[in-house]
Nucleic acid binder design. Structure first.
Lengths: 150, 150
DNA sequence: TATTTTTTGTTGCATTTGCAACAAAAAGAA
DNA sequence: TTCTTTTTGTTGCAAATGCAACAAAAAATA
């Protein structure tokens, strides 16, 4: 069995570590860039959907969003249709941070696939997307308190 | 540009979250399984090499190893050749935990690549290995305090 | 040899993380 | 409608995480 998990874990921790160092320049603390980009790309998204995009605990997302709001990167807007949820939008400050984050991410993607042909890049993306879809099923299952059998 | 980073981040967080929940059964707290498997597979490894395998901060590794030792999963042995480093070995308890961790990891690898042909599995592994090698260069560069240009 | 640099490891501090337990609104069922 | 379940969000812990600053041994250089 090919141990792809380990490779993925290593890549993810390394990349995340790099990003966190680089985004200190924007006064974004650990992990916050993850939330901010998604809110910029999905203006009006609610917290629950956001956490599903990122794959993080509900409480973690709640606090990351709180902090992003406190620091003026995003704002929560009431939904007249729904008293429970709040829609999340980037502020001007948040929007201003977006291009830098995006540029960094694009650079990292390029660097990560350095030496890849176009076909290999396509292949990598498509395989990873399939892996992600497989994994998110189990994630939701386990997060809901169910037990995997193996 | 294909956004493989995001896919990798999602997969990694989801999988890590699943593992942390499942390994509570072994009395392993968050992240500890990462260290324990590597020590089992590389008996005598020193902390610095361990952290490079995992891609985690030096201080994080120090404390994870301390805790693993305190809980009796591993032991540190002096190296007569070297007064600075200590070699890490699994205890009987650590060795006993290994098969369960391994089994869980194999299951997750299988699940992640569900629907993949043998060729696709090989391809995924090989592409990920190449990505990991690319990424670890930048990680070491940035961790040493250098600045990436983009 | 002596001196400088690199490697390896530790701790203080501030922060993030996530499980649990809870609350309240929304959605679904009776 | 009323009752039940699901969805969404929050907070109190306890723990992990990582940067910074430090220390000491080892390795490299003069």
């Amino acid at each position: 069995m090919k141990e792809i998990l380990r490779e993925i874990g290593m890549i993810s921790r390394a990349l995340d570590s790099i990003s966190n160092i680089e985004f200190k320049e924007l006064n974004l603390t650990k992990g916050q860039y993850l939330y901010l980009v998604r809110i910029c790309e999905h203006p009006g998204i609610i917290q629950e959907k956001l956490l599903e995009l990122i794959k993080v605990d509900r409480s973690t997302a709640a606090r990351a969003v709180q902090k992003l709001e406190a620091n003026g990167f995003i704002e929560k807007r009431e939904d007249p249709q729904n008293k429970k949820t709040k829609k999340l939008f980037p502020t001007e400050k948040g929007k201003a941070a977006y291009p830098f984050i995006k540029k960094e991410n694009v650079h990292s993607d390029r660097m990560a696939m350095d030496g890849f042909s176009e076909e290999e890049k396509e292949m990598a993306f498509s395989l990873l997307q399939r892996i992600r879809k497989n994994v998110e099923k189990d994630w939701e299952f386990v997060k809901k308190g169910h037990k995997r059998i193996y």
